[in-house]
Design a binder for these strands. Structure first.
Lengths: 212, 212
DNA sequence: GGCCCGTTCGAACGTCCGTTCGAGTGAACT
DNA sequence: AGTTCACTCGAACGGACGTTCGAACGGGCC
């Protein structure tokens, strides 16, 4: 149960150092998973003593909490920016997917942690993150609903959105920059085409790898 | 590092009890995740003393190993059965997806553990499971490649398959039998339609829920 | 100088975990 | 009756973990 408060409030250099800590924690959580990750390893990664961490953060749980909160906020802000000025529903969805995929490319650690540890937090902290997550989901769900405005009720739009997130979030299980020969924007374009028109119709570039 | 051996070999009632243990372990791993799950809780769930577990299994790691191995084997066997006699590529893919979704419905615990703990094992045990996983992936990848036999090279078929697995495996994050008003077979049909023809083209039943 | 206070840290504390040990049980076999 | 052997278990061991404590450092202010 998180008190949802930092150990102290508002002191100089506080945010900078804390962000540095969150970043180090994200790298460790990403590498070995939240449960296996030890505060000792986070302290080594951040080059801060073990006890030093607790000056900026009240608990290990809080590290995960802030990582998830910042990441979902950033995803949502990015989404709103990338939709600016676009009116065609297909282009709007394409922009949303591009935003999501780009975030993965730029913040692999944090997004992988978010995708993998969705059910790790508990209590208030969980509810708090869940609401951010819901906002983001609903924003994308709205874009999906725009796609078929005059075809009666948008049947299965919720299900389709859930599956779209499946495509996008499973990403971290197979994406390896060294082995995949597609740019992230090409990848986003292919995923958009797949979602909109299906595999049999979508024309696409190539995304094969050497093995598997 | 697993020795990849059981504590003892081939004794009467051995397999039955062991399967019972694996089942209990799968329920616990599913509920709280592999790392947080304690052998004490597994022993309580299986109604066996803590030390008793080690008569059937050499380590906690081995529990996960057998769960994953059995599950991927079962998925692959089910896939081969469900393809029997089908020749139309679209029907074959539909059957594959139905097989996958039905497995989820029937063995939620184990499949959720498999999807969530893909990177938990290490060394030999990891490689062993990984190969089963690869076989299954390649089998489905083969079906995807069948879909466009005379359209030049099947562009992006690997990527499309990876995304298909994303749709199918993310499943466990949102599926809740009490809140989703679709049968598993309907669900599989919708996912097949979405993958083959895309959201804008696929006619579908409804899968909306009350909230979120 | 003397004091405050934000910051850092080494060294511990208490807890929980995976695993092991050694003794005990009872059915099967000689 | 005695021996064997699969099976079961309570009790403990050693280690790793999250967290805390109290002391030290160092720059700004009286």
């Amino acid at each position: 149960m998180l008190p949802l408060q930092t150990a102290r409030k508002r002191t100089p250099a506080f945010d900078g150092k804390r962000l540095h800590l969150l970043d180090a924690a994200a790298r460790v959580f990403c590498a070995v998973g939240y449960d296996k990750a030890s505060m000792r390893r986070v302290s080594a990664e951040a080059r801060v003593s073990l006890a030093g961490i607790y000056h900026y953060v009240a608990s290990k749980e809080e590290l995960l909490y802030w990582i998830q909160l910042h990441t979902f906020d950033s995803l949502l802000r990015g989404l709103e920016n990338s939709l600016d000025g676009l009116v065609d529903p297909r282009q709007r969805l394409a922009a949303a997917i591009r935003n999501h995929v780009r975030h993965f490319g730029e913040n692999m650690h944090k997004l992988k942690v978010c995708a993998r540890e969705l059910e790790t937090l508990e209590g208030e902290a969980y509810d708090d993150v869940r609401e951010r997550r819901r906002s983001y989901f609903e924003a994308v769900h709205g874009l999906v609903k725009e796609l078929r405005p005059r075809h009666g009720v948008p049947l299965g739009s919720w299900l389709a959105t859930a599956n779209l997130f499946g495509m996008l979030n499973w990403f971290y299980q197979w994406y390896d920059p060294d082995r995949i020969r597609v740019s992230l924007d090409d990848l986003a374009a292919q995923q958009t085409a797949l979602f909109l028109d299906g595999y049999t119709a979508s024309a696409s570039g190539d995304g094969r790898r050497e093995t598997e």
